[in-house]
């Protein structure tokens, strides 16, 4: 059932690994062509996401599920912004640019700004020194919060250098180990996919 797509995955993946080692100009030209194809396919994948979003909200409106007027807002905005952007572009001076500056940008940044309140509330309620490890985490966090801002230097002139040491030594060691582990995991997953051992990305057979 999946033999064809699995062979495509193997051929493309193996080709890109081999082409990494071949510096010849013709080989790199083939490499560049494959990568440009992937760039274009990636764009369609993002478009697919927007279509799925449309379908989700259209279903809510069609069946008058609770909150459907809000879904209508989403659908109207999606169509309007897409249409204006495709016809007139998105550069400065266009309608979509104005919408971006007054709608997209403030809404996105404010949504994430809410996190400042929630992280403070969560730190007060849940950050507890229940054992040695939690205490170590808590103490380091407080030292970092105070030591990396201007007030830290006021309290103790050596604070910035001490926090720099925390980042340069224990933090570096742990993050390096994590990076090596993540790297090995990514390599093994990539090889499993290329060799056809891992096929979950193809979905279930019909």
């Amino acid at each position: 059932m999946y033999l064809g797509p699995v062979l495509v995955t193997f051929a493309v993946g193996a080709a890109l690994i081999v082409l990494f080692f071949v510096p010849h100009h013709q080989a790199q030209a083939v490499n560049a062509e494959i990568l440009e194809w992937a760039t274009i396919v990636y764009a369609f994948a993002l478009i697919l996401g927007s279509i799925s979003l449309w379908n989700t909200h259209a279903r809510k409106v069609r069946h008058r599920i609770e909150g459907w007027p809000y879904s209508l807002v989403t659908m109207i905005t999606l169509v309007a912004v897409t249409g204006l952007g495709v016809v007139f572009g998105t550069a400065e001076g266009t309608a979509v640019y104005a919408i971006y500056q007054s709608v997209n940008s403030p809404l996105a940044s404010t949504m994430f700004a809410l996190l400042a309140f929630f992280i403070a509330s969560a730190a007060f309620r849940a950050f507890r020194a229940r054992n040695l490890e939690a205490t170590l985490l808590l103490v380091t966090a407080v030292l970092m919060m105070i030591g990396r801002v201007s007030i830290g230097e006021f309290i103790w002139p050596g604070f910035p250098a001490f926090t720099e040491w925390l980042l340069d030594v224990p933090n570096l060691a742990a993050k390096r180990a994590i990076a090596i582990g993540v790297g090995l995991g990514a390599v093994s997953t990539g090889l499993k996919i290329i060799l056809g051992i891992e096929r979950s990305y193809l979905g279930r057979s019909n």
Binding site: A123, F124, F127, M145, V149
Partner: peptide
């Protein structure tokens, strides 16, 4: 924004310490 950054960091640090003291 650095003055605000400093003050809020102090507030959050005090909240963490206060929470543990209260516990």
């Amino acid at each position: 924004g650095m003055d605000a950054q400093s003050l809020v960091h102090v507030i959050v640090s005090l909240l963490v310490i206060l929470g543990n003291v209260a516990l």
